[in-house]
Write a protein that binds this DNA or RNA. Structure first.
Lengths: 250, 250
DNA sequence: ACCTGAACACCGTTCAAGT
DNA sequence: ACCTGAACACCGTTCAAGT
C-alpha cells in the first residue's frame, strides 16, 4: 500500500473526483477562469465528458470543490515565517498576529490562484452553509473572540475583517496578472500611475496626489497595513466601550 | 427638441450605445449575469447582432460601459437622507459622514444591481486607468484627506476603505438574491443560521456562537458598522501618530 | 459501477451583403 | 454610416450504449 506504485500516474490511474479537481486547479492556474472547460478537462484527463459527469454533477459543483480544496490548503498552513518577525512588537501567538497570519495565508493563496477571488465571493454567497464560509469565518472569528468585546461586536469585527481581506486580496490578485500572463507587473503599475497623473486636477485632486505611491507601493505590505487598520479600529472601539455608529473619536 | 417625441420609443428610435447599455442593465437586473446575452439583447432591441457590434466592440466592453454608467449614477446622488440622521452625533457634512454616504451609495447600488459587485472587481483590476476606479477612489480619498494624516497613510486608508466597501457590499449583494429570485430572504438566512448551529462544536465554536446573530442582523446596519470600524482605525492611528504595523494598541 | 462519444441547445463573434 | 442575418467555432450538458 505504501509502495512506490504512484509515479507516472497520468493516464493509468482511475478517474476520481480528486484527480478531476487537481486537473481543474492546474487549468485555472494556467489560463484563468476561461481556461477551465470540459473539453480541456477531458483532454488533460484523457476521457470523455460523460466520465467527468459521473464524478461531478456540473461545472458549478466542480468550481465549489476546487475552491474548497484550495482554501482548506491555505488555512491548514500555519505560516510561522510569512509575517516578517522584525516588523511587529508582539509575540507571534497573540490573537493579532494570528489574524495577520490567516489574512496573509488567504492573500497568498489568492495571489497564487487569481481566479480564487471571484470564486470565493461567488461561493460565499451561493451557499453560506457550504464548508468554505465557516472555515474562513471561524479561523478569523476565533481570534477576534480572544480580542474581547461583546458577542455582537465580535460578529461585526469578524465580518469586517473577512470582508476587507476578501476585497483587498481579490482586488490585488486581479491587479497582479491583469487577465494576461504576458503583461509585466512593473509596466502595468507604471501605466496606471501615469494615467492617474493625467487626470483632471479639478476633478481628481486626491487620485492625482497619490498616483506616485500607487506605483511604488508593495501590495503585500499595504494589505497588511489595512488589516492593522481594521484591528486598530476593533481594539479602539473596545477601549472606548462604544458600539459602532457613535463616532467615539474625531 | 424638447417636445414629447419620446414616448413609445422601443423600436422607432435609432440604435445607440446608450440604448444598448440601458437594455443591458435591464437584462442584468432581471436575470443576473447569465441574463445578458447578445441574443436577448438583439431581441429586446429588435435588431441583429451586427448592429450591436457596430456600437460596441465586444461583450467585455459592453460590461465596462454598463458598470461605468451605474457607478456614475450611484456616486452622483448625494444622499442626504440615506444615513439615518439620528444615529450619528456628527454634522452631516463632516468627512466621516460623507464617507458613510458614499459607502452607502455604493452599497445600495450593488444591492439594487447584484451583478455589479463582480463586475466592479473585474473592471477595477482589468484597467485601473478606466473611469470607474478613479471615480470611486477619488470620492473616498478626498474625504480621507480631510481626515488628516500623512499622504502615505491617506493612500493606505483610502485603499482599505474601498476594499472593505467593495468586499462587504459584494458579499452582501450575493447574499440577497442568492442566484435565484424565487428564494425568500428570511428563509435563506434561517437555513444558513441553522446550518451553522449544526456545525461541530469543537471545530467551529465561534461560528456556532454567532449563528443566532447571523439570522437577526441587518445587512445595511452591519455594513455601516464595518465602515465605522475602519474609520475608527484611521483616526486612532492618526492620534497615536503611528504608521500601520507597529500595533499601537493592545 | 464506471466510462465512451455523438448529439443538442446555446453562446460570442464575424462578415458579406444590403440601405 | 448604419444595419441585416446567416454562419462559425466553442461551450456545458445529456444519454444511449458499451464494459
Amino acid at each position: 500500500m505504501a509502495t512506490r506504485t504512484r509515479r507516472s500516474q497520468r493516464r493509468t490511474e482511475a478517474l476520481s473526483r480528486e484527480r478531476i479537481v487537481e486537473a481543474a486547479v492546474e487549468l485555472l492556474d494556467a489560463a484563468g477562469e476561461g481556461g477551465l472547460t470540459f473539453r480541456a478537462l477531458t483532454e488533460r484527463l484523457a476521457t470523455g465528458p460523460g466520465a467527468i459527469y459521473w464524478h461531478v454533477a456540473n461545472k458549478s459543483e466542480l468550481l465549489d470543490a476546487v475552491t474548497d480544496a484550495v482554501v482548506a490548503a491555505a488555512l491548514a498552513i500555519e505560516p510561522a515565517e510569512s509575517a516578517e518577525p522584525a516588523e511587529s512588537a508582539e509575540p507571534a501567538d497573540s490573537p493579532r498576529e494570528k489574524i495577520r497570519a490567516v489574512a496573509l495565508g488567504l492573500f497568498d493563496a489568492i495571489d497564487e490562484h487569481p481566479w480564487l477571488a471571484a470564486q470565493l465571493t461567488a461561493q460565499l454567497s451561493r451557499s453560506p452553509w457550504g464548508s468554505v464560509t465557516p472555515r474562513i469565518f471561524e479561523s478569523i472569528g476565533r481570534q477576534v473572540r480572544a480580542l474581547g468585546g461583546t458577542e455582537s461586536s465580535q460578529f461585526t469585527a469578524a465580518s469586517a475583517l473577512v470582508h476587507y481581506i476578501l476585497g483587498a486580496a481579490g482586488q490585488n490578485a486581479a491587479n497582479g496578472r491583469g487577465l494576461g500572463p504576458d503583461v509585466d507587473r512593473g509596466e502595468f503599475l507604471d501605466a496606471a500611475s501615469r494615467a492617474w497623473q493625467e487626470l483632471d486636477p479639478d476633478d481628481y485632486p486626491f487620485t492625482r496626489a497619490v498616483a506616485e505611491q500607487m506605483r511604488e507601493h508593495d501590495d503585500r505590505e499595504q494589505f497588511l497595513a489595512g488589516v492593522d487598520l481594521v484591528l486598530t479600529g476593533i481594539t479602539a472601539l473596545h477601549l472606548s466601550g462604544g458600539q459602532a455608529g457613535t463616532s467615539p473619536v474625531s
